[in-house]
Amino acid sequence: MTVAVRTRPSLRFRGRSFMALVLAPVVPMRDWLEDLDAVSKRSPGFFSGRAIILDVSELKPSKSELKFLLAALKMRDIRIIGLEGAAPSVLDDDMPTAVNGGRAAGDIEVPDIEAVALPVKAPQPATVSALLVEGSVRSGQSIIHTEGDVTVLGSVASGAEVVAGGSIHIYGALRGRAIAGCTGNARARIFCSKLEAELLAIDGLYKTADDLGAQHHGHRVQVSLDSDSIIVQTLD
């Protein structure tokens, strides 16, 4: 009797290369984000569908600063597939994968920000919507509301973040990250009943826990911008 032996094709691995766009932010971060927004306004689909690597070797960010930057890019619908130049100590499991060894492939043409005059529209009444979170924001959660204010009736845990186009009001303790005025609103503010934040940011300017010091720790505060400075004031 003849027994048929079924043979499987051998497992094959193929290499394929793709072009990736590398974003290399520089300080001051607010100016860099404004330039990024100008590119998006000039060519709304410029970042859409691109594989994008974030090179932070010039910034040498802390973990909180890197999380702020990734959140700012996420709000702009810029998807980062890999991180280059970040110290292993600042990387978390929920961040893009660390990459290295890429070869430069020349510059990619971007719209000329200075040469193009964008049309000026007449002021329109702002449509503001508020988001109410009835409870606390747990570690690992992100509340993102770019259309207006965010009010949290509970606390914001360490490792959680609240992002708003307007102001942020937290009735409990703020232990995570609060990012207000994310769409370019320098008049936005942050209010909380107990300040223990990992990061505070308004309109692209930020302070980490190390920058905040102990003076306002544990107090009820409001946070605002004064020119290029973040001001933290204790509330009675």
Rank of each mutant, 00 (worst) to 15 (best):
I143V: 10
I143F: 00
A115W: 02
V128I: 13
V137S: 07
I144G: 11
I144K: 12
R138K: 15
A130R: 14
A126Q: 10
P119Y: 00
G148E: 01
P111F: 11
E114F: 04
A122R: 15
V152W: 02
T151H: 03
T127I: 15
A122G: 09
E114L: 06
L132C: 14
L118D: 03
L131F: 06
V116I: 05
E114S: 11
P125D: 09
P111M: 08
P111L: 05
T127R: 15
E134G: 08
S136Q: 08
I144N: 09
I143C: 08
T127W: 02
P123L: 03
I144P: 04
D112V: 02
A117N: 10
S129G: 15
D112E: 08
A117T: 14
V116E: 07
P119D: 12
A126N: 12
S139V: 04
V137Y: 03
L118N: 02
A126Y: 03
T127M: 12
P123D: 06
T146K: 14
D112K: 02
E114V: 02
V116F: 08
G135M: 06
G140Q: 13
L131C: 11
D112Q: 03
T151L: 05
T151S: 15
V137W: 04
R138D: 12
V133P: 00
I113N: 02
G148S: 06
S142A: 15
V152K: 00
S136L: 06
S142Q: 15
G135S: 04
T151K: 02
E147Q: 13
T151M: 13
G140R: 12
E114A: 07
E134Y: 10
V116M: 06
E134F: 02
L118A: 01
A122P: 14
D112R: 01
A117M: 13
L132D: 15
H145K: 09
A122N: 11
S129C: 12
S136W: 10
P123C: 04
